[in-house]
Nucleic acid binder design. Sequence first.
DNA 1: CCCGGGTGATAGACAGTGTCTACTCGCAGT
DNA 2: ACTGCGAGTAGACACTGTCTATCACCCGGG
Lengths: 206, 206
Amino acid sequence: MSTEGSLRERLVEVGVHLVMTEGTTAVGLREIARRAGVSHGAPRRYFPTHHSLLSAIARRGFADLEARFAAAMAGLTSPRDLLRVFAREYVAYALECRGMFELMFRHELLDSDRHGSAGPRLRESTLPLFERLVALVAECRSAGNPPEDPAVAAAAFWSALHGLAQLWAWGSLRLVLDAHAGVPDGERLDRLVAEVLDAHLGPAVP
Amino acid sequence: MSTEGSLRERLVEVGVHLVMTEGTTAVGLREIARRAGVSHGAPRRYFPTHHSLLSAIARRGFADLEARFAAAMAGLTSPRDLLRVFAREYVAYALECRGMFELMFRHELLDSDRHGSAGPRLRESTLPLFERLVALVAECRSAGNPPEDPAVAAAAFWSALHGLAQLWAWGSLRLVLDAHAGVPDGERLDRLVAEVLDAHLGPAVP
DNA sequence: CCCGGGTGATAGACAGTGTCTACTCGCAGT
DNA sequence: ACTGCGAGTAGACACTGTCTATCACCCGGG
């Protein structure tokens, strides 16, 4: 392809593409090297271990996710609208980029313990986003439903979204809701997201 | 140990023990066979593929979890109390048996798509538990806060617990809450669980 | 002009894995 | 006593991540 950039960039790009199309288990060091058109030992110069390459791929995922947030939330001002968009985008990313989402939270594949050669540690990259989340949740619930601790409320909200994304991707929620039927197909996920919003931010005020 | 039972049982037990102590990635077919004292090809008679053995281990995990629920919920009658215990037990299991919890929801390691040789498919085993959950949530919120669809409310509740467990295990929630400080150490998780309960079931009525 | 040094990639080796297949051993039934 | 079969062994194959030696190339100093 084009891939004028350094091999390091290309490896990460190929890895992202591989995760998105084939899933997490397919992302081998040698497979990436093969698809990048280099020998199996080449990545070693930039990524001393398999985990470090996976971490780089996951980091790219977090960057992509944040870019999606920025794009989707641009122009909105109402905290409730912002959080709704945030929620939708979070779940949508997890479903569209299932492999990436899975990889991003696999603590034992990512060398999140030992600090990578350069760059901030992986989990800390979610911190600024969480700060925004805390502020939005606090603002959104300040009317009538003020949380005891906004950080705890925001963490619970994030947890609900995360669990929703994961369990839906796992197929379990689809299954149990099917068992109860009633809700038409494409709408079920939206109703779940709405339920999470209502539960954690208070019912919507139109 | 004792392990008088058939090799099939022993393999699953060794596998569970291995997952709990060493983590998901350590659970190789050969490693299990080694620890069970048989040759590397022996498991093949009972588990044709690696995934099928992992599925059996995960199934054991679901059984253990349900047993914990049964034990913890025995004697309680108030739906709110029952759900609180359920929530605590869910999160506690995820944290105590991190590897098992991780394995149990790794769709691509478990041959949940192709039906296993015998026994019900893995995801469906959570169905009866979910039915109970739906009933409890409906009952709990029937006073003052009736959900539009109890199944959706229960699914959202479960999602919140699941995400909480996973993000906490990942270390991310601990991190962001540390950034906001304020809450003493051992108490933070309890406060998160309480927040989830309040959000999804309505505030507690003492 | 030639000649080291270093960088970036190659290729081979090693231990380990999951899967497949051939083989052996003990023990039932006729 | 011979056969058939279930249960487990052992070897092979392709593949993986990691390590190491090697090679081509470029660039500055003499």
